[in-house]
Design a protein around this nucleic acid. Sequence first.
DNA 1: TATGAATGAGCCTTCATTCAT
DNA 2: TATGAATGAAGGCTCATTCAT
Lengths: 196, 196, 196, 196
Amino acid sequence: MRKKGANGQESRARLLIVAANEFAKSGYHQTKISTIVSRAGLTQPSFYLYFESKEAIFRELMEKFRSELKSLIEGSRLESGIDEAHVTGRLLGVLTGLFTFLGKDPDLTQIGFFIGDDSVIVKAEMAAMIEQNLKEEQRDGYFDRDSDMHIVAECLVGVIERLTSQQLLTGKRTPEDLARHVVSLFMHGISIYPAK
Amino acid sequence: MRKKGANGQESRARLLIVAANEFAKSGYHQTKISTIVSRAGLTQPSFYLYFESKEAIFRELMEKFRSELKSLIEGSRLESGIDEAHVTGRLLGVLTGLFTFLGKDPDLTQIGFFIGDDSVIVKAEMAAMIEQNLKEEQRDGYFDRDSDMHIVAECLVGVIERLTSQQLLTGKRTPEDLARHVVSLFMHGISIYPAK
Amino acid sequence: MRKKGANGQESRARLLIVAANEFAKSGYHQTKISTIVSRAGLTQPSFYLYFESKEAIFRELMEKFRSELKSLIEGSRLESGIDEAHVTGRLLGVLTGLFTFLGKDPDLTQIGFFIGDDSVIVKAEMAAMIEQNLKEEQRDGYFDRDSDMHIVAECLVGVIERLTSQQLLTGKRTPEDLARHVVSLFMHGISIYPAK
Amino acid sequence: MRKKGANGQESRARLLIVAANEFAKSGYHQTKISTIVSRAGLTQPSFYLYFESKEAIFRELMEKFRSELKSLIEGSRLESGIDEAHVTGRLLGVLTGLFTFLGKDPDLTQIGFFIGDDSVIVKAEMAAMIEQNLKEEQRDGYFDRDSDMHIVAECLVGVIERLTSQQLLTGKRTPEDLARHVVSLFMHGISIYPAK
DNA sequence: TATGAATGAGCCTTCATTCAT
DNA sequence: TATGAATGAAGGCTCATTCAT
């Protein structure tokens, strides 16, 4: 009979899962290797069988998040829209996809989007990409010429951040729900009066 | 005999300033008492003359932020508006005041709004208050009945968070500027087409 | 089914060679079993198939050196000389043989003569034997009666040590060359004036 | 009443002494900080009050040895001799001084001359210096033109090494005694017959 | 008011060695 | 004959905190 987990890749996977959970819960420095291995049913030296260091396993998790996010984004590179409905629909699709991704693995999201040092880079890149897209569509006449798209993009990232941590990761709302509200807010605002 | 320039309250104040800066820069756990006292020109035992522990000085800074924020909010409790311009103006005023406050002492803002464990409570309270106000005005007919003010409030907090850290604390935008953009975005969105 | 090229004695031999090289290069404590087995193309448990412990393999190498050295010495036990040329020639022969032996397997020499704890015993024995021989020949009238053969023997060992590590093992000089210089130095010194 | 050793410099000095003794006895890697501090009547963290790391305290001891040795050598730079007695006397003086220095602080000698990685450099420098001096005097006609002074210098270093560790540090012989024997051996050898 | 000196508790990492297959 | 997986035991270093002056 095999000792439980006497399979290398299984142990490694278990360590990754537990580590992600601990990092997500307590942050990088507060997370102790001893806790990780103990929860994974191993002893400390075993950890170093699979990872070079505490930093290395954290980096691996961070990289996983970044590469998955990159895949998602590259997969959603669509052609420019041609009418308002299209533009709205596209934004809705992108946001739904993003929220779905962010909600899929809460621990990894917590790490990649909030805890890791690189999370600020991740979000900066996201903001830059959004800004660029918004500007194109603004140039094409779909958006208000007076809006400062740099700020709008930053706002959108802030909204995504907050809704992710408060609504999505807590299970209060679904990705679709959140996407719909965000699109509605960013397209028309909440005023009942016309702009200007 | 007095040690060189050593007035107790002065030392205490210096410690608070340096500590705020270190906490803001490196976070709670990465900040070392030894660094704080050294930058404040004191030795470690002196620290404990003024503060019970590392946690205590951090809590004091956190409390300072919370109480100042509370003052600000209570001071801006105005009567309900009576027309659209009034509502918009009120929101603009509140946001300008808030950004001004958040930009006044960057280290303290960093701590109270981002680093401290309580920052999530602070922001939750802020969200709750905003939600309540928005709902009142929605009931009074100033805002779109279809908007989910819980989500809108959360979005607003997310936007404030992000703009504070990326635009305000970095000195890229003024409080007034930010407030204007946020109001514009939240009132009318960026679409050129009317809602629905 | 045999593993690729895996004859037991072959593996054992490979381990000995690699171990000798690592011990010689890095010393006992700095040498890691993991390095040895890895360089020998094996895994850690295999090591324990052939050797009881790290200490055991080291001891085996040390013993090999000691026994080979013993053979050499016993083989050179010749009858006492009868004239000066003979005495000189005998010393030359012994030293040449010794340097040849010490230069034959540099890793083993490094271990047995410098690294192992027993190397001090080896050298002490060598010194004692030399002292005894010198004293005999001194009694027979070939050497200066005033020389303290205990010290002379120690000096000779020191010279052998240093020349071995600095000239022989580095390939700068041949055994014959070294032996010749040592004999010359120990027989007549470097002064141009006669003794006394 | 002062706690025993509640004086920083005293504690530091005690650590240095104990450390030197442990390093001399067990070598660098086998020496444990825990042993050092315990023998010095302190706890582990106190060690780091005075030294940056284990390596740092070792380096400090090594440097002490090197700088003292350097002082000794520079102090003994005398003008060239003018006759044989002078040359012999000079060599005798230098060796006596050297052995006296090497016997003064056995632990430090052990470290600087045998244990530290730099000890091989120390001895190489010593050999180079000796070689240079011998060559000068050889050129001036005091020494046999046929002797290879490079080898002679190496031999002298080997002799010093061995006599230091086996006779001097064990207390069996005095510096003067050793110096005399070495001079005698190197000047005239042990043969009763004239050279050639 | 201030500090020189010291420490308890803890964390990351390493290495020789073994178990089960 | 060989190995994938695992561990007991240790060691260096850090940090908030305190004692005695």
